[in-house]
Design a protein around this nucleic acid. Structure first.
Lengths: 143, 143
DNA sequence: CTTGACCTTCAAGTGGCTTGAAGGTGTACG
DNA sequence: CGTACACCTTCAAGCCACTTGAAGGTCAAG
């Protein structure tokens, strides 16, 4: 007899939330597992492997549409490597852009933070908000 | 007589979408501007200043809840500097964490990408997917 | 007088879930 | 035996910050 795990235990083991697992199943990204006589989902070790794979793809921030495609290829016995590779490079590109955006933002925020500390609050004439509002002065200082 | 701008022109000038502006108004973050006789929104120069301020806060990725609070303080003639400052530092913290997460992800993705290129696809025994799946081997290599 | 670019409102969709309501199950304890 | 408690079930709605679409009104130019 095969040991199965209930959804809470499965979630703990693979690092997903129970609601995320149910959500993936509802979108037909994951197959519906067997149920116990009382209707509880029972995950086998193989099921857990699949869950772990999905968890890994999501941890790499693959969009669910890509996860769906990759899992479907796998389920049909086709090599999902092509899909995985193209998602990897697309993701890497997107993340690179996002990192650059965030780094610029971060520089702006830190500069604002410093400037705010040196600033006597004298609303409404002198205020960090004016700095925030007046993006020109910040831009010359920061960008 | 004061010159007013229709929503499309206003959006172009401040760098928001027309739908975003209408959305902020619907949430009572922005005041409802005067309407022309035919029902078009008419934005004054002061209105545009406020729109620009909001656009700037959003460009700094302040959550709308914070934008709402800051705009409300401003509207009531109170200095929103405290709120702005606390959001700035909270945002800066959050963005720092997010940057670090993304950099780790990026390293993982780039390593996977390289490894995938050196790998003969021989599904199902040898495949980039196995690498993706087998996070342990990646972790020792990458993290 | 029609074309086309603008504007209006309201509803629904996006992504990736989480949260809540209302109820069933399974086990340990008294 | 009852009951407390942690788990499970489904379905609906909420979250964020919008965008998109439908169905229609307005206005200036040609």
């Amino acid at each position: 007899m095969e040991q199965t795990f209930r959804i809470g235990e499965a979630a703990k083991q693979v690092g997903l939330s129970t609601s995320a697992i149910r959500y993936y199943e509802s979108l037909d990204i994951l197959p519906s597992p067997e149920r116990t006589h009382s209707g509880y989902r029972g995950y086998t070790d193989d099921d857990l492997d699949l869950l772990r794979f999905v968890a890994r793809l999501r941890a790499l921030e693959f969009p669910l549409s890509d996860v769906r495609e990759i899992i479907a290829l796998r389920r049909d016995g086709k090599a999902p490597c092509g899909a995985v590779r193209s998602t990897i490079s697309r993701e890497a590109e997107a993340i690179q852009g996002r990192i650059e955006d965030l780094r610029k933002l971060q520089t702006e925020l830190r500069t604002l933070e410093e400037t705010a500390n040196d600033l006597p609050d004298n609303w409404p004439t002198v205020c960090v908000c004016n700095l925030v509002a007046d993006s020109a002065s910040i831009r010359t200082a920061v960008l």
